[in-house]
């Protein structure tokens, strides 16, 4: 009975949050003096108006899911990885490097190695702050933010120097060969196999977290590091492993963007995917399947908002407002539920 009340309360609070954000969204649309019918029509047709528009949502969701999974794994171990953005860029560097400079080999092998290179570089970029936290207790929040900016600048340096495209004055790497592309899933849309990588990763992360000893230890450390340490779990090792997997997944997001969308390394391939991934992880409650849903949801919000800007003149930044508001409300809700249950 008590459980039912709790579930009802959670459900109610979720509906309340959805209602508040919808209300704020409507007020904003009214404030710019747009036709609400037209605006909301544009919003939904941007998401579900055609098969093509829905595949665009999934293309946008792919890096969000991958990086979101990474953030979720880290958060479950209470490693506050704010560095998915930088890890994503390092992954992009790794994938581009493997795509450009490795000798010829069978296509799928090459694609696999390029993605693995993305995982590896992203992982390394997260393991450094992870190691510094576990070994020397250097707080990871500031460190991972610094690593974001360092990674972004490294990309800027690479595309202007050693990886520069000699035939173009623009700061970008040469194009990968046309074959070296994640397979398209539904011609003529842009939907690529990165989505499959994301979904498989979600299942693997689920199995890892909930069906293996390492995953159990990781969650235990996140819940109570002291108790875990007392029961013989190595907290240090666990944090290093979680940061490696976390950064690796964000690196996969970068690799998938290079091999599935852009075909070359350049600046700005991530419009804050790594930061939005944190919101995705929070909305998905750090559960792999929740992250998949939240990733698609946030992608839909962004794509819908862009369409709304194009067709009804409502600034697309409305999606940023909604995202920020959602997180604030959800944070508040956790307090509300906690204070009522005690």
């Amino acid at each position: 009975m008590r459980n039912q009340v709790k579930i009802l309360g959670e459900l109610g609070s979720m509906i309340l949050i959805a209602a508040i954000t919808a209300l704020v969204g409507t007020i904003l649309v009214l404030a710019v003096g747009a036709d609400t019918g037209k605006a909301f029509g544009a919003f939904f047709s941007g998401i579900l108006g055609s098969f093509y528009s829905f595949t665009e949502v999934l293309v946008r969701a792919t890096p969000l899911i991958l990086a979101g999974l990474g953030v979720a794994v880290a958060f479950q171990a209470r490693f506050f990885n704010i560095g998915a953005e930088g890890q994503l860029y390092m992954g992009a560097i790794g994938a581009t490097w493997a795509g450009l400079y490795l000798p010829a080999m069978p296509l799928y092998l090459h694609l696999g190695i390029a993605m693995m290179a993305g995982f590896l570089l992203g992982g390394i970029w997260a393991v450094i702050p992870g190691f510094l936290k576990s070994q020397y207790r250097i707080p990871e929040v500031i460190n991972t933010i610094m690593f974001n900016y360092i990674a972004i600048n490294i990309v800027g340096i690479l595309v202007r120097t050693v990886m520069a495209n000699k035939t173009s004055p623009l700061p970008m790497s040469p194009r990968l060969s046309d074959d070296l592309h994640l397979p398209f899933l539904a011609d003529p849309t842009r939907l690529h196999a990165g989505l499959l990588v994301a979904l498989v990763s979600a299942v693997l992360v689920y199995l890892f977290l909930y069906k293996t000893t390492w995953g159990f230890e990781l969650r235990a450390v996140g819940n109570n590091p002291r108790a875990s340490s007392c029961s013989g779990i190595s907290v240090k090792k666990t944090i290093v492993i979680s940061s490696l997997i976390s950064g690796g997944l964000a690196g996969l997001a970068g690799g998938s963007e290079i091999l599935g969308v852009h075909g070359r390394l350049m600046e700005g391939i991530s419009p804050e995917f790594g930061y939005i991934a944190i919101i995705v992880a929070l909305l998905g409650r750090n559960h792999p399947f929740g992250v998949v849903l939240a990733g698609v949801g946030i992608a839909a919000l962004q794509i819908g908002a862009t369409t709304m800007q194009r067709r009804a003149g409502v600034p697309a930044s409305i999606s940023l407002i909604i995202m920020g508001l959602l997180v604030v409300l959800i944070l508040g809700r956790q307090y509300w539920i906690k204070s009522r249950s005690t």
Partner: peptide, 13 residues
């Protein structure tokens, strides 16, 4: 982080 998004959204909007 959420407030950064909120502020960016509100001011741009």
């Amino acid at each position: 982080l959420a407030l950064n998004f909120l502020a960016l959204g509100l001011t741009s909007f």
